[in-house]
Simulated scan of single mutants.
Amino acid sequence: MTDRPGPPLAFRPPMTPALVVRRAVLEQNLAAMQALCDAAGVKLRAHGKMHKCSTLGRRQVELGAVGLCCQTVGEAEVYAAAGVGDLLVTSPPAPWGAARIAAIAKGGVKIAVVADDAGQIDRLSAAAVAADTIVGLVVDIDLGTHRTGVPPEDVLALVRHANAAPGLLYRGVQAYLGHLQHLTDLDQRRAACEVTRQRLGGLVGELTEAGLAPQLVTGGGTGTYAADLASGVFNEIQAGSYAFMDVEYEDCPSPDGGPWAFASSLFLAATVVSARHKTHVVCDAGLKAHSVDGPPARIAAGAPQGARWRPMGDEHGAIFHPALTQALKSGGDFDRAVTATDADEAIPWPADAPQVGDLVWLQPGHIDPTVNLHDALFVVDELGGVEVWPIDARRTARV
């Protein structure tokens, strides 16, 4: 998309902070990724960890996704209960999760789970046998992220172990390249994708020669989708962030070298609750509304161009006026700089600063953990209609 559609300014949420989705842009994003996958002959298994919303997950399946990825057992339970019939748990579960996963399979859902050691496989096998059901097993391979996954040299042995385990159906392998998703140097990202493609292709060949050809070769993501789809190795990709997008992704080049095929569809609406200083106003979106593990939220509307949001505690965020940020930098001490600026009669109060009660619209810096802080999405169509979609897969698991 060459344009950058903004938030639905005509909509005022009933409370703030609130996550608001522009439905038309969301639908464009979903259709664009599905079309790219269809054209490449690769299945899309949309990653449900990003949105944790069963309504959105079902919509992705309606548009052609083969199913959903889940990062947690709790997500899998929610998506299964919501009617999503094909699930892949993309992180090795804790020991307590084996029985829960077997229960999902017993309920008629096609579910697979990744594992990266023999003990995990044995626990899943025992749980599946005890529940008199079949659970799919995907061997997780580490090709550089170093988070989970078996080293390449140990893949064949672990696949053999999985293939022999009662109650389990060996489905294939996973190679998620999380360490490549946000590389800002596109040439470096592409080169790294090619190296991992060759290594993964070699492993698939080795398994095939051993009579253990993987049905699934799954992985990839929004930041590497072009290379993933063109690899000739992946037959399923696990993209997630494409549906909403965020600052972290938009600050990286699109993997195909052109404009991003997806645009920001989700925004965080905040209300100005205090305007006592020339340098900044204070809104009700702080650390409990926006995760700060990635780049700061970007102001999309409601404040002068160049204004910046920064957290000021659990419940509060500051919107710093662009004309006065230099005063804060040169003052050294924040308290002293704000006090001096307020007292300086030569510095006028900014006429274009947001006022108490005004909405400020933020684009999240990192979507996944930000969405996880909220209970619902307000989904707004172009005519002003609103639906509330619960973020119902936030929980870890039932107790």
Rank of each mutant, 00 (worst) to 15 (best):
A263I: 01
A35Y: 09
V113N: 06
V114I: 09
G313T: 00
A275C: 01
S291K: 08
L137R: 09
A40L: 09
A118W: 07
V89L: 13
S330I: 14
S241E: 10
A105S: 08
R310Q: 15
A337C: 03
A191Q: 10
D117P: 09
K278M: 14
H51C: 10
V66H: 12
A343Y: 07
P5W: 01
K329W: 15
L362N: 01
L44A: 11
F11Q: 11
R22V: 03
V360D: 06
V139N: 02
L212Q: 04
I299A: 02
N235C: 02
D314S: 15
F244W: 11
G286T: 00
S264G: 10
K288V: 14
A230Q: 07
C37W: 12
D246G: 00
L203G: 12
G221S: 11
D335C: 12
D284L: 10
D342L: 08
P354M: 12
D358I: 10
G64Q: 13
D142W: 14
N235V: 00
P253E: 09
V84I: 04
Q355G: 12
L143E: 05
S291G: 11
G144W: 01
R160F: 09
V66S: 15
A128P: 06
V139Q: 12
V138A: 11
R59T: 04
G97L: 01
S274F: 08
V109Q: 07
Q238F: 05
I347F: 00
G64V: 03
T208N: 11
A210P: 04
A105C: 07
Q60M: 09
